[in-house]
Design a protein around this nucleic acid. Structure first.
Lengths: 201, 201
DNA sequence: CCTACCGATCGGTAGG
DNA sequence: CCTACCGATCGGTAGG
């Protein structure tokens, strides 16, 4: 029977490795045989944990979301709502990407680009995670606005779009051109963007 | 013998279709057998045009770059250097993405994300094309600066990074969430960004 | 959770 | 430029 503590630990080790592979080679490039060999178990043994490749992919997305929440979202909640939390959120994201928590950079950047033009449950799961994150950033921006730290006419969705654009492009450029400078570019852009919208200039 | 007019036309039809597939399913998801079936030719016949999958991938990148130049770069050269050309470049890019010149959105966004964490000739070709584009945008920005239409202390590389971030994120968001609003977000951000750097406020 | 296998598809080749 | 094939690998299953 599934669900025993031992199984859960094994499952979590499998999924953490799956997310690492997928960040580099995509969720289609992640093959059950390769993952099994990597982990030193039989292919059918590993297969039994998930039942299909699609279920493995979906479980990997959920596992990566948990890492993302732990690395980026949770530590920002220790900062009180307001501009400080927005800044912290951005810095956490850039650090998560730059430290290569996943070896291929942000897991969701890779998987969103892979599935953005195909239908299916994996795409739906990735899109839902992306929407959660976008809304979370927009909410943090709106909190700062309501607290009077950002101008009253600030559009939270628009500002969230711009901040996320800088972060994701830093991830993309740093990977493709092996250029850590991209993170400083993003930090500069985010600083300027928030300063412009700030009431405390 | 290769290189006859007939062959060149066939080759170009093959590569245009290859780029369409790759924009949706990636250059690894592009299989020789599937491409051959799609085009109604034999797999080995098609294979003969390229000699290996990697050569097909590289030829596809070159073909997509030609489309990109024709759709985005060339029509911007009809506008004289300066802020107008920068705006035109951005608008051409957004239109190229929004019109789905490639059905999976910007070919290079998809392929760059697919290969950004793997070594090889395909990655190198994608990175080179990306660098060409980034430099072209930065050059257009610097022209506008030297013409006095952008502030003298404008950093062309920084501004190019920001403009490209808005464009690529519009592409990504519009695909993943089927949300054409993302393009208006990018247009708003680009307008504000250029207005802020402009000397004609 | 293992070995051993299934049919399908992959990139690539032989031979004409 | 075709048919027919190669070994390798894919997702998935049978049987224990």
């Amino acid at each position: 029977m599934a669900g025993r503590p031992r199984d859960e630990r094994t499952r979590s080790v499998i999924l953490r490795r799956a997310a690492d592979i997928a960040s580099q080679d995509g969720l289609e490039g992640l093959s059950i045989g390769r993952l099994a060999t990597d982990l030193g178990v039989s292919k059918s043994g590993l297969f039994g944990y998930f039942g299909s490749k699609e279920e493995l992919q979906l479980a990997t997305v959920r596992a990566a979301a948990a890492v993302y929440v732990e690395e980026v979202v949770q530590p920002a909640l220790t900062v009180p709502p307001g501009l400080g939390r927005v800044r912290r959120l951005c810095e956490n994201w850039l650090s998560y990407s730059q430290r290569r928590v996943f070896p291929g950079g942000c897991f969701f950047f890779a998987v969103n680009a892979e599935f953005d033009a195909r239908p299916g449950r994996v795409r739906d799961a990735a899109a839902a995670a992306s929407l959660d994150w976008t809304r979370f950033v927009a909410r943090a921006v709106d909190d700062a606005r309501q607290l009077g730290e950002l101008a009253g006419d600030t559009d939270p969705d628009q500002l969230a779009f711009e901040l996320i654009a800088f972060m994701e492009t830093a991830n993309a450029v740093s990977l493709l051109h092996d250029d850590p400078n991209a993170y400083e570019r993003a930090r500069t852009a985010i600083r300027r963007c928030l300063d412009t919208a700030s009431t405390n200039r």
